[in-house]
């Protein structure tokens, strides 16, 4: 099957993301990239864990963190992970419109998460928790901010795919692209699970 072939629901393969050689390569290459991302975030987590008690007179974690806000952000991101599963479900059923709709919902939820994070950082800065305040502050903003940057990049990526392929419809050229973007989005949620556990929840209990 070649990538630009016009397909119908009947002829669309069961695993469209791996039906072409390019798709197979993308799939494998992207998982290798995610292995590298794991190492990147591990180094940031390690730095944070090593330095999190060094507040240099600034507010400590348990006085600073806004748990209700973190809880809402967590729910938004977790739900957006499910909505992107729905998008891929409709991709496999060759339903382009529904796939676009569920990716749009994913983007909205992700934008909500990002908005909350920006609001949160702004609040912290006004409480004297600025990047250069302490080793704790620097490692906190680097870790959580790198994750936030990934969210922002993921939003732009999914939006670009949606707009670029809006008139093209679904084929074996763009199916791997959508699939890989959804993997990225899930990975962002994987990292967030450890951030809310290690940074926020462990910050509350010491």
């Amino acid at each position: 099957m070649h990538a630009e072939e016009k397909l119908t629901a009947e002829t669309f393969p069961a695993a469209p993301e791996k039906a072409t050689l390019e798709g197979k390569n993308k799939f494998l290459g992207f998982w290798l990239f995610l292995g590298g991302e794991t190492v990147l975030f591990a180094s940031l987590f390690a730095t944070y864990l090593a330095l999190r008690d060094k507040t240099a007179g600034g507010p400590p974690a348990h006085e600073l963190f806004r748990m209700p806000l973190v809880f809402v952000a967590t729910m938004l991101l977790l739900t957006s992970s499910l909505t992107s599963v729905y998008a891929i479900y409709h991709m496999k059923n060759f339903d382009f419109k529904k796939m676009q709709l569920w990716f749009a919902i994913t983007v909205l939820l992700g934008a909500g998460f990002l908005g909350l994070e920006i609001f949160e950082f702004n609040e912290y800065v006004h409480e004297g928790h600025v990047f250069t305040k302490s080793a704790f502050a620097s490692s906190f903003y680097t870790l959580v901010g790198t994750h936030g940057g990934h969210v922002a990049f993921g939003l732009l990526w999914i939006l670009t795919l949606m707009i670029r392929n809006a008139k093209r419809g679904l084929n074996l050229y763009n199916a791997p692209k959508f699939y890989v973007a959804s993997l990225y989005w899930h990975f962002i949620d994987v990292v967030w699970v450890f951030i809310f556990t290690v940074v926020y929840l462990m910050g509350m209990v010491g």
Binding site: G35, V39, A42, F45
Partner: peptide
Amino acid sequence: FIYGGVLVA
């Protein structure tokens, strides 16, 4: 790939 990353992590 992922478990390799986790090991290094």
